[in-house]
């Protein structure tokens, strides 16, 4: 048979080697895709965490934890699922932080004030590095708008806050938001509707209808 005549040992060896090479390529593709995804969401996730915990370093820890968990546990999942999974992990991290923070503040409320270990802040080597930021006047206006929004969002109940952040600020659709929040699509719509109404009342007509 001609087909077998042409199938020499070298060809068989090449076929045997092909599978691991393809696996390696698939692994590299997955790593590149995850890198792109995390690069897209990292700053947004950081700002969301910072809005929730009001502490830069804690927000960084929460985002790093979420990235690690996604890479370790869910990298094999289809990339379309990464966004809701990542934000679900992120909000779990935020809730854990808030629980720990509540316990800490209860403990410190009965602790002598001198023994909290308030060490001097280490020097920040990036303190004088120039940032690639918008011009000061535009930045100031944006800062003021964001500060007002942050204060208003902070006053919302937790689930309304999550629905507003994911749906409005992150632009996720109802199904993705439901997956990220671990609730039904109907609940997302209700939380989001209430959040929008509360925020409009808080921020007034200047923010638009």
């Amino acid at each position: 048979m001609k087909g077998f005549d042409t199938l020499d040992f070298a060809s068989v060896a090449r076929l045997a080697d092909a599978e691991p090479a393809t696996q390696e390529e698939a692994r590299l593709d997955q790593a590149r895709a995850l890198d792109r995804f995390l690069a897209e969401v990292e700053k947004r996730a950081f700002r969301i965490a910072q809005m929730a915990v009001r502490d830069r370093d804690d927000a960084l820890d929460i985002v790093q934890g979420a990235m690690l968990r996604l890479a370790r546990n869910y990298a094999q999942r289809p990339s379309e699922e990464w966004k809701p999974l990542f934000y679900r992990i992120l909000y779990n991290g935020i809730r854990d932080w808030q629980r720990r923070s509540a316990v800490r503040s209860r403990i410190f409320s009965i602790w002598p004030s001198g023994s909290r270990g308030d060490d001097e802040e280490p020097t920040d080597p990036y303190e004088h590095v120039a940032d690639n930021l918008p011009e000061p006047s535009r930045r100031l206006m944006a800062d003021e708008a964001m500060q007002r929004l942050e204060s208003a969002v902070e006053a919302l109940p937790a689930r309304q806050r999550e629905a507003f952040v994911l749906r409005c600020l992150e632009g996720m659709d109802v199904a993705q938001t439901a997956a990220a929040m671990g609730c039904s699509e109907g609940s997302v719509k209700t939380h989001y509707f209430r959040a929008l109404n509360a925020l409009r009342q808080q921020l007034g007509e200047a923010w638009g209808p």
Binding site: R44, R47, P125, V129, L133, D143, A145, M146, L149
Partner: peptide, 13 residues
């Protein structure tokens, strides 16, 4: 407003 605050994240962060 949120996007602007994301763009304003500093170099160190």
């Amino acid at each position: 407003a949120f996007d602007a605050s994301v763009d304003a994240v500093d170099a160190h962060t």
